[in-house]
């Protein structure tokens, strides 16, 4: 194990997979010479050269279309969309093409491609650069959707994504790039796709999170532990496929659940997970499932009001207290 940042863990995963498999190549806006807007692709051009580390025009839809064609032709593209917000320009190739091609062509081809997208709010970037669009991707069958919370998961999941033979949307939170954690050095360390992880065991309430929301949930759980409240934190890691077994096993144990989502509440993943919990373990619930969500508003710039639009450890703690006290 060695301590490294989320950014460096992603960077190491890219380097290891490019060394491991010559068909892996990286493309995106400013990923080569500039080494990435968030410096996740630092050092790649120097080590792997111009044919494997490709700067592209600002043409998001075509970045994905070219990745689809390259994957169909036998390569393993790892595309970076500079931020998740720009993925909306590429939704035609992502949703109409990438997720349909294997199916509508009768299983005669597959697309081993990964699309990395930094995203999330909290950096005062305003309405167009602060979105959390995970639900958009989860809604559509035909792709994997991953969202790591820790450096170790960032490395292990990205490696699994690149080796997977299905299209993978790989979401990274911009506020986590500098976070540090222990990361296994083994170049064969992989985190399996489709497996959530109980990041903290507890008895009284299950908190379901992903990405930065997991980090806030852990913080809330830690603070509540000092008040004698025992929380279990389930980190989804994989949003599609969703590991419902791990969620339900935890809720069966605690009888209570709070789902934390950074995305907008309406039709968000919290609604989906709440619904699954109600459908599958209504009999064990001691309180209604509670959602802590991003507010249903475009993100404002001013930090005073931006903060209230995004779940915080405090709002998570309040939701847990409510669920425990019956004050919902």
């Amino acid at each position: 194990m060695s301590e490294m940042t989320y950014r460096d863990a992603l960077n190491l995963a890219l380097k290891e997979e490019m060394r491991h498999d010559p068909s892996v190549f990286v493309l995106g806006e400013d990923v080569a010479l500039y080494e990435g807007s968030f410096k996740v692709t630092r050092g790649l051009l120097a080590e792997f050269g111009e044919e494997r580390v490709k700067d592209t025009p600002i043409s998001e839809n075509t970045i994905i279309g070219v990745s689809i064609g390259a994957a169909m032709g036998g390569l393993r593209p790892v595309a970076e969309l500079m931020t998740v917000n720009f993925a909306l320009l590429a939704m035609d190739q992502i949703v109409n093409h990438m997720t349909k091609i294997r199916y509508m062509f009768g299983g005669q081809t597959h697309l081993p491609m990964t699309i990395r997208m930094p995203g999330g709010g909290g950096s005062q970037l305003g309405a167009q650069h602060s979105q959390s669009l995970e639900t958009f991707f989860m809604h559509c069958p035909g792709m994997r959707v991953l969202y790591p919370a820790t450096p170790a998961d960032a490395k292990g999941l990205l490696k699994s994504a690149i080796r997977d033979n299905n299209p993978v949307i790989f979401l990274e939170h911009e506020l986590l790039y500098n976070s540090k954690g222990e990361v296994p050095e083994d170049p064969e360390f992989l985190v399996p796709i489709g497996q959530a992880e109980v990041k903290r065991a507890g008895e009284q309430v299950t908190i379901v999170g992903y990405g930065r929301m997991t980090i806030l949930a852990l913080q809330a759980a830690e603070e509540l532990a000092r008040e004698g409240v025992s929380c279990e934190v389930v980190d989804l890691r994989s949003l599609a496929p969703l590991d419902t077994e791990t969620i339900l096993a935890s809720v069966r144990k605690t009888g209570r659940a709070v789902v934390v989502e950074e995305c907008w509440r309406t039709c968000g993943l919290g609604a989906e997970i709440s619904s699954i919990i109600f459908e599958k373990c209504f009999d064990v619930l001691r309180a209604p499932v509670r959602r802590v969500s991003g507010l249903d508003v475009p993100m404002p710039y001013s930090r005073k009001i931006e903060k209230i639009c995004i779940p915080q450890a405090e709002t998570i703690k309040q939701a847990i207290r409510d669920v425990l006290s019956g004050g919902y």
């Binding site: 190549f25 044919e51 839809n61 075509t62 994905i64 279309g65 070219v66 990745s67 689809i68 064609g69 390259a70 994957a71 169909m72 032709g73 036998g74 390569l75 593209p77 190739q93 093409h97």
Partner: peptide, 14 residues
């Protein structure tokens, strides 16, 4: 269009 470009890239790459 872009899928054709990607296939052409894979051909050159390989």
């Amino acid at each position: 269009f872009p899928i054709s470009v990607g296939l052409a890239f894979s051909a050159r790459y390989r």
